[in-house]
């Protein structure tokens, strides 16, 4: 159990570090972004909202940095991330609340499914080295070097258009009212298919390569030879002996590269105008909407930390050695 506790302590520390970075970055902005917003909103902002923005940006000159830091934490704990400039006058927390389910649905599911398919394919490719399966390697190398968003652009050009089954943008038919009825769910699936396929294809190839390399390394271990010598079926040796051990580094690799994958997949949302956090981040960057950018960065980081923690738990289940007490 001490392993898990150590990990939790580490994630709490990282969360603290991310929040602290988030506190200091806006202090690099030259000028007074809040003043610009107040001018833009033509007096529609309440004094409270203005005050909250001043705390976020550290423009309250009467306080020391330490005081500002504690006030910032106080505000965060109350869920107050300031007001969004782009979606004025909605609070950032509400805007993120709208986008988060779409991103979790799209990016979350495709990342996990991509890892599973890629690992399975890598197992086979690594096991059958020196056969036709090796041809897959140059292909996957090429595919994994393509930026996610560009693959999305190509998919849109080739597969969408008038009369095509795949819509080019959005997350559901705009004529429908979001709800839990079959028509809406069907429409969501249809709109999500192409972005999901794009993410799957690009994220899978990395897992194929790393799993293949691990399989090749593991295949020469003595226990694999013993398993063969015992007369176990090829399939059983591959899955139960080689893959089971090759999987471990891949799982920890998965945890470590989550941050990277999530960054890439957010861009797919931009290309497909999928209403998740990625698209909001894009809009925020375009409008210099600092509170929204900060809020999105914070939420993405916290989600990645949570996902990392889940991957750690999976590792704990897969590798009995980490469960040993003492």
């Amino acid at each position: 159990m001490s392993y898990l506790l150590k990990r939790i302590a580490f994630y709490l520390f990282t969360a603290w570090a991310a929040i602290t970075i988030n506190f200091f970055v806006p202090r690099l902005i030259p000028g007074d972004p809040v003043q610009a917003l107040i001018t833009k909103s033509r007096g529609q902002m309440t004094t409270e909202a203005v005050q909250s923005l001043y705390v976020l940006f550290g423009l309250d000159k009467d306080e020391s940095v330490i005081e500002q830091y504690f006030r910032y934490w106080g505000q965060l704990l109350r869920g107050d991330l300031g007001l969004s400039f782009t979606f004025f006058p909605s609070p950032v927390a509400d805007v993120i609340g709208d986008g988060l389910p779409w991103t979790v649905g799209l990016v979350g599911i495709t990342t996990v499914v991509g890892f599973l398919i890629g690992t399975a394919a890598g197992t086979v490719v690594g096991w059958r080295r020196g056969s036709w399966a090796d041809l897959l390697i140059p292909v996957t190398t090429f595919v994994s070097s393509i930026p996610y968003f560009w693959l999305g652009l190509i998919a849109i050009t080739l597969l969408t258009g008038r009369g095509s089954f795949f819509p080019a943008s959005g997350a559901y038919d705009t004529g429908l009212v979001p709800g839990w009825d079959w028509e809406f769910i069907g429409s969501t699936l249809r709109y999500g298919l192409l972005p999901a396929a794009t993410i799957l294809i690009s994220s899978m190839s990395g897992w194929i390569l790393s799993m293949r390399n691990m399989m090749v390394t593991v295949a020469s271990e003595d226990y694999v030879t013993v398993a063969h010598a015992k007369g176990l079926s090829e399939r059983r040796v591959m899955v139960g002996y080689a893959a089971r051990n090759a999987l471990l580094p891949n799982v920890s690799g998965f945890a470590l590269s989550l941050g990277f994958i999530v960054g890439g997949t957010l861009l797919v949302e931009i290309v497909f105008s999928y209403p998740g956090l990625g698209l909001q981040l894009f809009q925020a960057v375009g409008a210099k909407d600092y509170p929204l950018m900060q809020g999105i960065f914070l939420i993405i980081t916290l989600s990645v930390l949570l996902a990392n923690f889940l991957a750690d738990v999976a590792y704990l289940v897969l590798d009995p050695r980490t469960r040993r007490e003492g």
């Binding site: 990282t14 030259p30 960054g263 950018m293 960065f297």
Partner: peptide, 24 residues
Amino acid sequence: SALSNVFLVIPALPLIIIITSTLP
């Protein structure tokens, strides 16, 4: 070592985006 682990887990691309978009 802890520092490098922290930087490893924080999603780099969003971090780069927020830093560069605040720089003049």
